[in-house]
Design a protein around this nucleic acid. Structure first.
Length: 598
RNA sequence: GCGCCUGUAGCUCAGUCGGAUAGAGCAGCGGCCUUCUAAGCCGUUGGUCGGAGGUUCGAUUCCUCUCAGGCGCGCCA
């Protein structure tokens, strides 16, 4: 259908250009899009209105030209001019049937390899070592995973990288707290939870000491910070030792990373998420001096107030600090190094893995880092990076009761959310289908629960600010993953009984619901390509929901197994089987599983 | 102070980079299980698209201003 649309668009534009005498001012371009309403046909062209104004011609005259150029095309039964100057196109059932037959034989369901030959790095999830993953990380993980799957399906060579937060000032604090207050049994049971407890305890101790050492009014006075509490001084010393390569501190730090990674890996296993690399911030540490040297050597960064800074006045952005006045490096430095490795700009072709020489780089984080990435990408361009650099940001997650700080007790932990999702889905499975055995009910609960959670995050435009609510996040009705999974299970039930199930047959489109289904099925590649281009997975959710709704209508109105004639039965079986494949493949691109029975 | 994002039905959200009478789900109301899984289907109620100007044949969409909320802004990540 994509090919047809562009063919018709070009044909229409050519006809109009000839009519207008190939005008130099306004290039004649016409796009063919899906019609807004059934009575307007299947496809429509609305560009004549705009062109009419530019060329001072009556819109209907131009529309008539376009219409007569397209009439007689084999794919179309009717071409009509409507309203002020729209051209409505009606597709021939024969054309639809022929394309469905082709689609049924295509293992890729019509997906075109638009990313062929291109390497793409996608950075997502990226939790911080020693901090538990919460519902905010879930968004990055789920969106990133859906994108990596989709981009792979479109032919990109995808490198999924988990850019772990494994380097930073928190490690000094953790080392101090670990030595003072470690509960070994708790650590053995759940290292990340224990490390969080230690981190929180450190903060409390710091506050207490701060209270003792001055600062009469803790509220306002940001300016006059009193002397740093002793425990904070201690943490700074430990951090310096760690960065200088002190063996004991280094061993502790590596232990924190290794143990955290185990905990994260279990979550990813449960979610079905995989990475090609886990190149955390620390992986780039060794190259930071060279980054700054190069930047200053090329005049990109200059000294200012003792720090090394890149000024971005051309881009109307605030300055970007790449080296602190104390000589230390920060997030900006690490990210420049990371970007250089990912895109392979010299001279930083060091690495345990890479450089990757990617043509496209996607970074999935929350909205708060928009400015940072604008600055980073601006620096990247000065370094000569030509790859497409995209900050795939998503809206923050907020609690229903208002914004709550990440203090323990108020955070919803990932595992807790997934457990509850599975519990609810398992119970629902039992209610809807009492005949299920224990094991099957649990498996359905797992797949449906996980699907509901993932789809909840994926189905909204990623940029919307979401207010978390248990009932909304774990809903199983309406526009949710279970609805799609249920449609799939019903199809499987039909196919099980079809015996033998003929997958290929001549398609007959006798009912309106069959025709609707045919149109929706053919639109699959378009939806997937849109996700690949715009990095917005909700477009695929919308498509799949529409496909499932269209199928449900078909299911209610057209008997498959008891169709009036044998050819019609075969046709409907083929159509049904194709819906199943499209749902399974589409949900698969979102990282959501399906079940044969529910 | 400067900047980014968001405001669409009671609630949660779509709205194809200017098109025809703004669409779904949930909630509400009324129907449909002697036929393939009722986690479903059909019908119905509900809108000054935050507000005010502007651009034009046409604005939820683009521009300006304004209100409300969220988030950033030289040595955290």
């Amino acid at each position: 259908m994509l090919e047809l649309a562009s063919e018709l668009g070009q044909k229409a534009a050519a006809a109009l250009a000839a009519h207008l005498g190939s005008p130099p001012d306004f290039p004649v371009e016409l796009t063919v899009v899906r019609a807004g309403k059934p009575e307007f046909g299947d496809l429509q062209i609305s560009g004549c209105l705009q062109l009419a104004k530019q060329h001072q011609r009556p819109p209907r005259e131009l529309a008539e030209r376009v219409a007569s150029a397209l009439r007689g095309h084999a794919a179309l039964t009717k071409v009509e001019v409507a309203g002020p100057g729209f051209v409505n196109l009606h597709l021939a059932n024969g054309w639809l049937a022929a394309h469905l037959a082709k689609r049924a034989e295509d293992p890729k369901l019509g997906l075109r390899p638009i990313g062929q030959g291109q390497r793409l790095v996608i950075d997502f999830s990226s939790p911080n070592v020693a901090k538990p993953m919460h519902i905010g990380h879930l968004r990055s993980t789920i969106i990133g995973d859906a994108l990596q799957r989709t981009l792979r399906a479109l032919g990109y060579e995808v490198i999924a990288d988990n850019h772990l937060g494994d380097w930073g000032t928190q490690f000094g604090k953790l080392i101090v707290a670990y030595r003072r207050w470690l509960d070994a049994a708790a650590y053995a049971a759940d290292p990340v939870a224990e490390l969080l407890r230690l981190y929180v305890k450190f903060g409390e101790e710091e506050e207490q000491q701060r209270g003792e050492h001055g600062r009469a009014s803790p509220g306002e006075a940001e300016e006059e910070t009193g002397p740093a509490p002793p425990i904070l001084e201690e943490a700074r010393r430990e951090l310096v030792k760690l960065q200088a390569g002190d063996p004991e501190n280094r061993a502790l730090w590596q232990k924190f990373i290794a143990d955290s990674r185990h905990v994260f890996a279990a979550v990813y296993e449960r979610l079905g998420v995989r990475f090609d690399h886990w190149l955390g911030e620390s992986a780039y540490h060794a190259m930071l001096p060279r980054v700054v040297e190069d930047l200053t050597g090329r005049g990109i960064a200059v000294e200012s107030r003792g720090a090394k800074v890149v000024f971005l006045e051309e881009e109307k952005l605030p300055p970007f600090i790449v080296q602190k006045s104390d000589g230390g490096y920060n997030y900006a430095t690490t990210d420049i190094a990371t970007l250089a490795v990912r895109t392979g700009v010299p001279p930083w072709a060091y690495m345990p893995a890479g450089p990757f020489d990617a043509q496209r780089v996607l970074v999935v984080t929350d909205e708060r880092q928009q400015l940072h990435f604008k600055q980073l990408f601006a620096v990247g361009r000065r370094l000569g990076i030509t790859a497409s650099l995209e900050h795939v940001w998503f809206g923050l997650m907020r609690m229903a009761e208002g914004t709550i700080k990440t203090r323990e007790g108020n955070v919803i932990h990932l595992a807790e959310l997934l457990d509850e999702a599975e519990r609810r889905a398992t119970r629902a499975a039992g209610e809807h289908n009492p005949d299920l055995g224990e094991a099957e009910r649990k498996e359905i609960g797992r797949v449906v629960g996980l699907g509901a959670v993932k789809y909840n995050d994926l189905s909204k435009d990623r940029q919307t600010l979401v207010t978390f609510s248990w009932d909304k996040a774990l809903s199983l009705d309406g526009n949710t993953a279970p609805y799609l999974q249920y449609a799939y299970a019903r199809i499987c039930s039909i196919l099980r009984k079809a015996d033998p199930s003929p997958s290929r047959a001549a398609i007959e489109l006798t009912l309106p619901t069959e025709r609707d289904l045919a149109l929706r099925l053919l639109a699959f590649p378009e939806a997937v390509e849109q996700v690949g281009r715009s990095a917005r997975p909700h477009l695929l959710c919308d498509y799949l929901f529409e496909l499932a709704t269209t199928f449900s209508n078909f299911y209610a109105s057209a008997p498959v197994l008891k169709a009036e004639t044998a050819p019609l039965r075969a046709s409907r079986l083929a159509l049904t089987a194709l819906v199943a494949r499209t749902l399974r493949e589409g949900l698969g691109l979102l990282g959501i599983e399906v079940l044969d029975r529910m």
